[in-house]
Design a protein around this nucleic acid. Structure first.
Lengths: 265, 265
DNA sequence: CAGTGGTCTAGACCACACT
DNA sequence: GTGTGGTCTAGACCACTGC
């Protein structure tokens, strides 16, 4: 395992790996990975907030006592993971869901014709929002214990007046104290941007499990469709920094004029 | 626009952009992008085949009269796009769907419990495989003209004996002359690996549109489910090099014991 | 051992944005 | 012009693979 020459007078080489001395894996870690970890730590601790710029490559290189190229490689990876955003001539910025360019990055439902951006944001109607105790499956998804406090919300999203998405959302109670239906309904912009601003929680990545299902009577009523209408069931777990799960979301998507779009590579 | 110093005696700087002289966009293209284009061209023309190694970074640097670092950056991007695969100490290889590591990379349907790899490959039953004329929508998807020859196939994939996927596949007739039902059913390994080996067609990326639907009588019979069973409709267009569409695939997935898995970032 | 990709440095210059 | 990220080079050394 290499170590960072934070207090050394001279930039150092990685101090070589464990070799055959122990039974543990060598676990060689390149310098730029360690730098990446340190930057990640600063992001996590809120040293730089979403939308703000981080120090220049030269400054970071000086701070960490490494060359610009090494800092550069660390930032490259963080930018590839959508944690940072580089803008030539301006600087490097902490990514945010408020950014116009990548707004609604996690919403893959697209209208069959035309551009998603043209359609504009959905009309949101919050059915319910309250503090409850986590059921076993919700607790498991959010890495909590059964019975821990969670905020539970249900809302309907409509496009051009047509109810299209029915969403149930669960959030850890400790991180989202005081979340109201009003916030979920009336915040201008992506919900995840509101989470950043009001609760300091930045969603970094998510996993979705998708199925085809038929709605129960309640769900059909909420979406104003017959119960025989097949719907897309989308279960999402969203994670903050360090793979900590911070949201469970179960969506039902009406897919007669929309589709879920995915790119494979 | 910079140009490559292929015959120069000295490594060159990019020859600067157009400046304000013309009305055309400057279209500055960094050296490594040009190198990337040349490597791409060699891949496309089959100079190096799937699974083979390409020349070392040093050799390519010599061939293109640039530094190793520049070649490196070009290869980095191609590796990130899954066109090449780097293996430390061994070399850089042309990616292939036959690779154990990334087999069935485009199949996102996973069993609800356990690992996909454990389940093993599906049993394939080919219902139909014949040469037909392209309908308007198939032609559009494959960038052909209506009436052009296409190979059309239908097959059912079963896991542990349970029919789970019904697939209709369309392929450009000119590139897949002589494709048989036997090949589609009995080739050991991913179908896309067979396409590479027998037809020299490598699928590089794909786009999918997903909906929830109810099957018609025929489809329900093929999957041995009631007609009221909601199914995932997955329409895929797969592309070779240079964004040329080479396959249209319409799948119906049974999602009672499986789900479509997606990662968002 | 030689050859491959992987890391790190140092320095030069280019493209872009702001002032 | 100044400062930012972006490109390119040259050279050194490290880690991994296979002869």
């Amino acid at each position: 395992m290499s170590s960072l020459p934070l207090n050394a007078d001279h930039p150092a080489q990685p101090l070589a790996s464990a070799g055959t001395a122990g039974t543990a894996t060598p676990a060689f870690s390149p310098l730029y990975q360690q730098i990446k970890g340190l930057i990640l730590q600063s992001l996590q601790q809120g040293e730089w907030k979403p939308g703000e710029s981080i120090p220049s490559e030269m400054e970071l290189a000086a701070r960490f006592r490494v060359s610009q190229g090494t800092v550069r490689k660390a930032i490259d990876e963080l930018a590839a993971e959508n944690l940072l955003m580089r803008r030539q001539g301006k600087g490097t910025f902490v990514a945010t869901h408020a950014e116009q360019q990548v707004q609604y990055r996690f919403l893959k439902l697209m209208p069959d014709t035309g551009d998603a951006r043209v359609e504009g944001p959905a009309q949101r109607k919050v059915i319910d929002c309250r503090r409850v105790r986590a059921s076993a499956d919700v607790a498991r998804a959010l890495a909590l214990r059964s019975g821990d406090a969670v905020v539970q919300a249900r809302r309907v999203l409509a496009f051009a007046g047509v109810p299209t998405i029915l969403e149930d959302i669960w959030l850890p109670g400790h991180a989202f104290k005081g979340l109201t239906a009003d916030q979920l309904a009336n915040y201008q912009g992506p919900t995840y941007a509101m989470f950043e601003l009001d609760y300091g929680v930045r969603m970094v990545r998510a996993e979705e499990k998708i199925r085809a299902v038929l709605p129960d009577a309640d769900q059909a009523a909420m979406l104003q469709v017959p119960q025989a209408t097949p719907l897309l069931s989308v279960e999402r777990i969203a994670y903050t920094y360090n793979d900590v799960p911070m949201e469970l979301r179960r969506g039902l998507y009406l897919t007669d004029t929309h589709h879920y779009r995915n790119e494979l590579s």
